[in-house]
């Protein structure tokens, strides 16, 4: 049976009378956005923590927004993404003195989704690499301590804190990832596998999933055409949009030149018995004149055709 637990991570940009804007531009655009995702058959919705107050404003409450999703065939809001990509004197996961503030922020986000059944509290465990350099064991330990603390907190509210690593973050190599996870409590801190980010960083996402299967609570299915061989990851002020060598890091599934072996990944997922959500993410899809809508359709086509076939083969193998 085809995988039905596909969710969509909200980066969308649409055309409005005031130029390209997120659909939260107004209620009408947000409604249209939900319908558009619904038409493709997505059943889960992931969004950023900073959109929650906006959604509450548009719909009356986050719960009411979720009900609108459900009216359109969705199950629920599946994940909330929280991040501190830039270190400041107030918030920097590798600086213990900022942890109370970060925990307080997380509590506010938890309150915003109280009463819902969000499964994943997705976090960037670190800020930019260059702001943490030199990345030491001790700093990784400090970051692990923070997320152990947050993980315990979110679990009390039914959400698992799950770590999403960026190619430009301070925890990026396989050795750093393993060290970070060794410092975290498997009961409180989980793994979120972003296929493109790991690939750019030179880490095999399939092997990561294989090795951290028991702690994996989700995926961002997105592709890349480029491995970072220029040390863009450590280049200030921003490797993601300002790297001189690469103007676009992320692509939807199914483009020529994509480096992620998604059929192999889906086979691995099926074989492993993982039964959680799989999330489509498009990050900066508008670069090179692209549109989020078309990128999403093309990715869903890839799911319905290429991945469905790979999954069917894996199902047959599992049945034997």
């Amino acid at each position: 049976m085809a995988w039905t637990k596909w969710s969509y991570m909200d980066h969308w940009v649409t055309e409005t009378p005031q130029g390209p804007q997120p659909p939260s531009f107004n209620r009408d655009h947000m409604d249209r956005y939900v319908k558009q995702l619904s038409a493709l058959g997505f059943r889960g919705f992931d969004t950023f923590f900073f959109y929650l107050p906006i959604l509450a404003g548009l719909y009356g409450s986050v719960k009411a927004f979720e009900e609108y999703l459900q009216d359109n065939g969705f199950d629920k809001i599946t994940g909330i993404f929280s991040a501190y990509p830039y270190a400041t004197e107030y918030t920097a996961p590798h600086v213990s003195e900022t942890h109370d503030r970060i925990v307080a922020d997380c509590q506010a986000t938890i309150r915003a989704v109280e009463g819902l059944s969000v499964e994943n509290f997705i976090v960037m465990p670190s800020t930019t690499y260059f702001q943490v350099e030199p990345v030491t064991d001790e700093k990784i330990k400090i970051m692990a301590d923070l997320w152990n603390r947050v993980g315990r907190l979110t679990l009390e509210h039914g959400m698992r804190t799950t770590c999403h690593f960026e190619f430009w973050g301070a925890i990026r190599t396989r050795e750093q990832l393993d060290l970070f996870f060794s410092y975290t409590d498997p009961q409180y801190v989980y793994f979120f596998c972003d296929t493109a980010q790991h690939t750019i960083a030179g880490v095999d996402p399939i092997q990561m999933f294989r090795d951290y299967r028991d702690r994996c609570t989700g995926f961002h299915f997105k592709d890349t055409h480029t491995v970072d061989t220029h040390e863009a990851y450590r280049t200030p002020p921003d490797p993601e949009l300002m790297a001189p060598q690469v103007t676009r890091w992320f692509h939807e599934m199914g483009t020529d030149g994509g480096l992620v072996d998604f059929p192999a990944l889906i086979r691995e997922i099926v074989t492993s018995g993982y039964d959680g959500w799989l999330t489509v993410e498009h990050d900066k899809a508008e670069l090179d004149g692209g549109s989020y809508a078309e990128a999403t359709c093309v990715a869903k086509w890839y799911i319905d055709n290429v991945l469905a076939e790979a999954q069917a083969l894996a199902d047959q193998g599992a049945a034997r």
């Binding site: 558009q36 619904s38 359109n72």
Partner: peptide
């Protein structure tokens, strides 16, 4: 946007 409109029509 063609894709957006196709999605709305499909919906």
């Amino acid at each position: 946007n063609p894709a957006e409109l196709a999605m709305l029509n499909s919906w």
